[in-house]
Amino acid sequence: MSSSIKSESSDSDVHISHENQKKINRFAIMNGWIEEIQDSLATKQTLLTHLEDAENDLLLSDVLMENPDMQIPVLVGESFVSFTNDEVQEHIEGLKKRTRLEIENLESRVKDIKCEMDVLKTALYEQFGNNINLENDGSVVERAPKFNA
């Protein structure tokens, strides 16, 4: 309650210039990006873990120890192609390398975006203080004071 009174009293000071509106817009758009990039980052990281697990399982497999020439089916596209042990390792190594590269790219994008968002956040909080809420619930909403008729 007290906070709403406070924002009512300070509301007269809130004037939003076009410049500030642009900053708010940019922030909102970037907020949309970051969520998506973080999702695909998580997917890639899971993939990398799975690849590492597969690699370890190949190394520890008893069946493979007994039959070193065994053909191992590996999912390629939509079907399983049989590879020899060496080929599988090469295949996995290649996928791991590619996935690591993709993760690096995504991470550096996240870093850049977060950096710019922080700059905007600082500037906007400085300008509007408690009258603006830029927290990570995905919304950029000006706090509207409650009106008790």
């Binding site: 809130v14 509106q21 708010i24 817009n25 758009i29 950029v140 000006e142 509207a144």
Partner: peptide, 15 residues
């Protein structure tokens, strides 16, 4: 961007 502008406009007009 248009949605954000509209949100801000609505909040300010409400205020």
């Amino acid at each position: 961007e248009q949605i954000t502008v509209t949100e801000v406009n609505m909040a300010r007009i409400y205020n």
